[in-house]
């Protein structure tokens, strides 16, 4: 409890410090306020967006896209990662190909995704799930292929068949890596979400950022950026919380 208080205290101090500096820099005419709005201006823009109803609807649509893309990408990532790590045929067939795909950044996929899936939801789901998939696959594959030899020997000498060896030994042994992959995947889901929404979208946080650019509404852009920051941080701490329970033996 005390460490929690300390953590929140630190967060409060650091945040108020940043806001204070921001306020001073923007409020005293050190920079052009049209380019660098003050905290009250940003707050006002947020209220305006809320009144228009787009703040909440943007948030909803963006979260939905991230969630669906993440679910598809991470499910495939875990399944295929386990297979490429433990089944020789899959490893031969897929590993080199997936390794080649990895350096392609998500943004580079947006044009082709739009051609393939149109400017509707399909292209967003594709870009996000693709990005999440690669991160989750890589971590799952690494975790499942580096299971300690003693665990496998122990399982076999205790009479476990291949099925039990896989589900009761390989999967839990790889779980800490899988969880790291999922956490990374969640962060990447946000990254690719914005990439997908910046072009060819008519809603969502990314679209709102792009839309605000047309009218040089930097206050609205700040709202979007802060939204992304808060969402990302919240999501990450939820992940840390869940993973601590899921792979509780790692910290023990």
């Amino acid at each position: 409890m005390e460490t929690h208080l300390k953590k929140y205290g630190q967060l409060a101090v650091s945040l108020s410090g940043v806001i204070a500096v921001w306020w001073i820099v923007s409020g005293f005419g050190l920079v052009n306020q049209n380019l660098f709005p003050t905290p009250p201006q940003v707050l006002a823009a947020a209220v305006e967006l809320y009144r228009d109803g787009v703040l909440i609807s943007d948030l909803q649509i963006s979260l939905k896209r991230a969630a669906i893309g993440f679910t598809i990408g991470s499910t495939l990532g875990v399944l295929i990662g386990l297979l490429t790590a433990r089944v020789f045929a899959f490893s031969v067939a897929l590993e080199p190909f997936l390794t080649l795909l990895r350096p392609i950044p998500a943004i580079a996929l947006v044009p082709i995704a739009i051609v393939w899936f149109g400017i509707g939801e399909g292209s967003k789901y594709f870009v996000i799930s693709y990005t999440v998939f690669l991160a989750v696959w890589l971590n799952t594959h690494a975790g499942a292929s580096s299971v300690a030899g003693t665990y496998i020997r122990a399982a076999r000498s205790l009479g476990a068949n291949r099925f039990r060896e896989f589900f009761e030994v390989v999967v839990p042994a790889a779980a800490p890596h899988i969880v790291v992959g999922l956490r990374l995947g969640a962060a990447l889901a946000f990254l690719s979400l914005v990439a997908a929404e910046l072009s060819g979208a008519s809603s969502g946080i990314g679209f709102r950022l792009q839309d605000a650019r047309q009218f040089i509404q930097t206050d609205r852009m700040f709202v979007g950026l802060i939204e992304l920051g808060i969402l990302g941080a919240l999501l990450d701490s939820v992940f840390v919380l869940i993973s601590r329970r899921l792979v509780h033996w790692e910290s023990a």
């Binding site: 003693t150 665990y151 020997r153 122990a154 076999r156 000498s157 205790l158 009479g159 009761e168 030994v169 839990p172 042994a173 779980a175 792979v247 033996w249 023990a252």
Partner: peptide, 18 residues
């Protein structure tokens, strides 16, 4: 090959931590 009639206690703790 490995035979469950032969029990093994390993050098490192091979207990399953999960």
């Amino acid at each position: 090959g490995i035979n469950p009639d032969v029990g093994v206690v390993f050098q490192q703790y091979a207990l399953f931590p999960w």
